[in-house]
Design a protein around this nucleic acid. Structure first.
Lengths: 342, 342
DNA sequence: GATATGCTTTGGAACGTTCAAGGTGGACGT
DNA sequence: ACGTCCACCTTGAACGTTCCAAAGCATATC
């Protein structure tokens, strides 16, 4: 019997396989999900039938019955044009890959600004995803509290800033260590007046990165007065901050909270005919594609995003396992990639 | 009766809503899918019940019954570190957004190199997605032919190179026009010796981009001899090609097939103490974040990815509609973003 | 030879939705 | 008064899978 319908041949079902192998539906199901339960020869027979028909379980039916979709929701954050922050690309890719190995797929969605939890709510209510990966864990983000209140499953990339008693798994990167690495590297190169260009004070992450710089400076008895600037995360802010610092504090090196800001410094150097790496050293943060391609190469702190994705998937497997297991938060260490700018 | 189970309260079902509203399941279903069928007052009553319970249809059950998941598969291509090609980021984002408005979600997956169609096959067999968006349509890509042979639904971002009788919807960008724009812009600025750095000859897209340059040159009676170079798409290849061209052909401007290659030119200029924009003009392709942030700004051809995503979703809706409708391929025009490098 | 034991397999029900029929009541025409 | 039609709503079945309880069947035990 040909099963050709209008558009596409209907995929084989459990029943088709069962009939071909001469067993019951449930036995085929077991062959797929609990092969240990079958006698060796039956298993072989069923597997042959599965192979022959090219059978794969229908996801919708399986989800309906097991109440698990094996999908993970990830909210795509708006691209910020004009900045160097294409870091998410690398993260998303690693996440898709590791999640895939664990049998999960990544479902993307976005939310409009008026209703920041809208996308989450839809997916949750329609039981479309088993869990979420949350990446923007800044203080005061309503999404985390909301997810908690809805008893939704999620893992976070980023510490639960401001939720000391949070119960969800999280993975984060010790970025204070990152800027400390950067600063120490410059000190070792002989620099003593090293300026910091970071983010506004209300960014906890920004303050943390800054602390790595100031800690490194102090532990080598170097002064930090007048050497720090806190601005928005745009190229132009970095450019202006660098110009002001060069005029007033005469640093020989810059450590920046992002590659975007570091590119701002590059702009100022360019305008003044100074050469990054030769006249002034610059270090960025994120190891973006910009850092990798701009001449003469921007030294930058590289976050272990691949590893972070791996840990998040591990945490997800624990969270969704039976019994559920929630481990402690995981803190990863970044590394410094040295290039021509230092 | 409290429905609290261990982890999370079970979401309300059609039956719950029906009971509360005092109607049958099917009526609730109609209220959701075909409101016109209901009398105004019943509709209001049902909608109130839906609102009160926060009901949303269970996606798995719906998919099972309707054989449509409202998911679109997108294969995530490997990030190429060291290049400026983070263009996909912008495309994926637009796609997620427009697809979301049309009621579709984007499901990501990746494939290992050994089995390029593995990921597609899994999703197709398990009827996890309704269709695919294919983004790498280079000549000889096995995926397109394979999808066609499996009668899978898909739309392509990129012309069906080498499949003149392809029946699938596609959207592409006229990149010959892009490099023509770039070249004409340079000619208008007074340049006469404009070099081309592009991709190896086996890339049809590369040849197309190149043709825009040569066409613009010829139509203004400018010579192209010795001014073209075809290399791999890496910064270093661009760097070396630029060095060779500067030595041998003495161009005053470069048009490149990608921002990555343009950054290669920047490297050579940097090494020789030349300033992009002042001493030598450079134009790239893709309007990557690198082009946007590098000093003094890299003039670049910007592809209308947002529009492309919109057209693709429109094509998808046609393809999946009843009756299915496949329109002609859509060709979009890129624009030139002028920055300091020219 | 009857009974218990462990391994293997089975049949019916259920997950929550939509499809395809079927019912009900009133308005309308003759 | 009767049938016809229409607008509205309901009922049972089906989508393809897994859960649950129980049946089949050898083998071991008394």
């Amino acid at each position: 019997m040909s099963r050709m319908t209008g558009r596409m041949a209907a995929p084989p079902t459990l029943a088709d396989v069962a009939e071909l192998a001469g067993v019951s539906r449930q036995t085929v199901s077991n062959a797929v999900n609990n092969p240990d339960l079958l006698r060796a020869d039956t298993l072989a027979r069923v597997q042959a039938a599965i192979e022959q028909l090219g059978y794969q379980p229908n996801r919708a039916a399986r989800s309906l019955r097991t109440r698990a979709s094996h999908l993970i929701g990830l909210r795509l954050q708006p691209v910020q044009e004009g900045t160097a922050n294409a870091m998410m690309d690398r993260f998303v890719h690693s996440l898709v890959e590791t999640a895939g190995e664990a049998g999960y797929h990544v479902l993307l969605f976005s939310t409009d600004n008026e209703d920041p939890v809208g996308g989450y709510d839809d997916l949750l209510r329609s039981t479309a995803v088993d869990a979420f990966v949350v990446t923007d864990t800044y203080l005061g983000n309503p999404q985390i509290a909301w997810l908690q209140s809805r008893r939704a499953q999620f893992v976070a990339f980023g510490r639960p800033w401001g939720y000391p008693d949070a119960r969800h798994p999280w993975v984060d990167i010790d970025s204070a260590y990152g800027s400390e690495l950067a600063t120490t590297h410059l000190i070792d190169k002989g620099h003593t007046r090293i300026a910091w260009i970071g983010w506004r004070k209300d960014s906890l992450l920004g303050e943390e990165r800054r602390s790595g710089w100031s800690h490194a400076m102090r532990s080598r008895d170097l002064s930090t007065t007048g050497l720090a600037s806190r601005v928005e995360d745009t190229v132009n802010s970095g450019r202006m901050a660098a110009a002001a610092l060069l005029d007033e504090a005469r640093p020989s090196a810059f450590v920046c909270a992002s590659d975007t800001l570091a590119m701002g410094v590059f702009h100022t150097l360019f305008e003044r005919g100074l050469r990054p790496g030769q006249d002034i050293a610059v270090v960025g943060f994120d190891d973006s594609l910009v850092a990798q391609t701009v001449p003469p190469g921007l030294t930058s702190v590289r976050q272990p995003l691949e590893e972070a994705a791996g840990e998040l998937v591990k945490a997800l497997e624990g969270l969704l396992g039976t019994p559920p297991y929630v481990g402690p938060g995981v803190m990863l260490k970044p590394a410094l990639v040295v290039r021509g700018s230092s």
